[in-house]
Design a protein around this nucleic acid. Structure first.
Lengths: 169, 169
DNA sequence: CGAGACATGTAAGGGGTTACATGATTTA
DNA sequence: TAAATCATGTAACCCCTTACATGTCTCG
């Protein structure tokens, strides 16, 4: 029995969406999907599927020739775990965990910070627009809804930091 | 040379604000300050100051009698590290890391989720109001600004999930 | 005075981050 | 064809989480 982390569910979910995937596939997939609000270093995308396969949540199959890459697909057990997870209420409280906010809290110059953050968030909104524009047909609604949430939050962040820029000082 | 993590800076910052603090002081302090957007398990507040003291960023002094608790205060080295950190631009990109968003992404029932999240966020706004109401005089502006950011984001989240609740389905 | 809640602390294990390393492809 | 970039993978270390554990109040 291993413990299933959020990373585990991301991997399970992506493998299910993809049908079958190598770690590198996952990496590319993440970068244009959950990656926009939940980053995962690529090394995790090698370690985690392997762990999940050892515990029976994924099936692992190694290519015969060439790079002999490992190809993963979801098992019944994996599908079940994923379903139970989505059905269960979200236990953990959401945290902001924004490094910029930490610095603000501990006395960094607000206008300095605000300038950076405004630039970052504007770039991020651009990216979101790109992602929406290039989304493939036939996608389930979840990813798009999550993207909407990302946009909402980015806009809220922009409003906050812009207010700070305007404030006198 | 140890690596300074975000947790390190939180501890340094809080010790500096407090002047002198035991791990338990830090725990209480966190729960009414940074804790509202960046949670830290209390065990970290024992381990991390000890680590920082070993590396010279904090001074550690053990009480003579009684519980023989360890009392920490910041050193010149610690103060310098903290200042450099606040002055440095925030390198890491902000992430949402919201478990509810993950579930949404992977197909959880939006209305189900939305109901929970609306309740959570409303409670959170209540807490923010409490914190603001009971804030001590003479606090530096950083913490209050960070609190404002928390409020902004919570409101944005509320708006998002409420929209989901209203959506037909 | 007994029991529950709060205060205070430590240990172990694993997940994640950072760094390294080596093929394959493009581009100049 | 050299160099730079991308693709693909592995390894080690350490922070962080999840327990466990034992005082010390407080209130009925």
């Amino acid at each position: 029995m291993i413990r299933l982390t959020q990373t585990s569910y991301i991997v399970l979910g992506l493998v299910q969406l993809a049908g079958t995937a190598t770690p590198y596939d996952l990496k590319r997939f993440v970068s244009v999907s959950v990656g926009y609000f939940w980053a995962i270093p690529h090394s995790q995308l090698y370690a985690e599927p392997s762990r999940l396969a050892a515990a029976g949540y994924l099936k692992e199959k190694q290519e015969a020739g060439g790079r002999r890459r490992k190809v993963y697909s979801i098992t019944a057990k994996g599908r079940k775990a994923l379903e139970e997870w989505t059905a269960r209420p979200a236990e953990e409280r959401t945290e902001l965990r924004d490094p910029a906010l930490l610095k603000l809290f501990f006395g960094a110059d607000p206008r300095e910070l605000a300038r950076e953050q405004v630039a970052n968030l504007e770039a991020q909104l651009e990216e979101y627009a790109q992602i929406r524009a290039t989304a493939p047909e036939g996608l389930p609604p979840g990813p798009m809804l999550a993207l909407d949430a990302g946009v909402t939050h980015a806009r809220a962040g922009l409003a906050f930091w812009r207010r700070l820029l305007e404030g006198r000082s």
